[in-house]
Write a protein that binds this DNA or RNA. Structure first.
Lengths: 135, 135
DNA sequence: CAGCATCCACCCTGATACTG
DNA sequence: CAGTATCAGGGTGGATGCTG
């Protein structure tokens, strides 16, 4: 039995960690806002409500599938509201909820840090690349 | 020729957007810190320098491949320093650079927001799931 | 101790076609 | 207009085996 101990302990560690990670609020939120389209949609809606087609135009590079998927998730998370107007043709408006708006400052802080320090990062990368630690 | 216009305009839009996204500092930084292991490594090093084995133990669930890869990227970005002591056996210490430390407040802000609002998100999810908009 | 190289399974993404 | 359904490809991460 002892032969499996090491292997199983590893598994146990992994599982425990996975559980820890899965339940970590910071991770959950980071995973969400780091999504390529999520950040773009939140930013777009930060300027005010938009219709589906409006978002599609505003973000341009997004496929319908991804836009819809992103909006569904954001709606599910309570960050975005979806308002359907049963006219002909139908009209759907998306807007940030208060919860969604409360996330904007974080995104903005990240943006600010990025703009402040991105040059240092690029410089570090250049140095690193020109002086490869492993020849 | 006109038949290809729409399709090509789409491509152009996508490419332009890809370029925009790729050059967007906020995106670059978000992509990095949102990495599963990056955030854990930065957090671990936030308490002080650690050796490779120390990190491995501290983070537990990480594979060597991912830990090494993560550390290389962080080193390349100038967020983490790598100090090799040529003893027998070799010893390698990792620590946050000033640049790396300047990132901690952002992570902390995200963490704080997460802890403050995660319940609202969970609540919204429950509501959404129990009342499926699309039957 | 601190890695590197390889292979593989999975998920995410995007393209495409169709609908109320 | 605002989606849904389906399928194929690529990138990501993990397990494994080997080195200075």
């Amino acid at each position: 039995m002892a032969t499996r101990t090491a292997e199983e302990r590893r598994r146990a560690e992994r599982e425990a960690y996975d559980a820890y990670l899965a339940s970590c609020p910071a991770r959950q939120v980071l995973d969400r806002i780091s999504d390529k389209w999520v950040s773009l949609v939140l930013n777009a809606l930060g300027d005010g409500p938009l219709r589906y087609s409006g978002l599609s135009r505003r973000i341009a590079g997004v496929s319908q599938k991804m836009l819809t998927q992103t909006l569904r998730n954001l709606e599910r998370d309570g960050l975005v509201s979806r308002t359907l107007t049963p006219s002909v043709p139908v009209r759907v408006d998306y807007a940030l909820t208060p919860l969604g708006e409360s996330l904007l400052p974080i995104m903005h802080a990240a943006k600010t840090w990025a703009e402040t320090h991105i040059q240092e990062i690029h410089a570090a990368q250049s140095t690193y690349d020109q002086n490869p630690p492993r020849p």
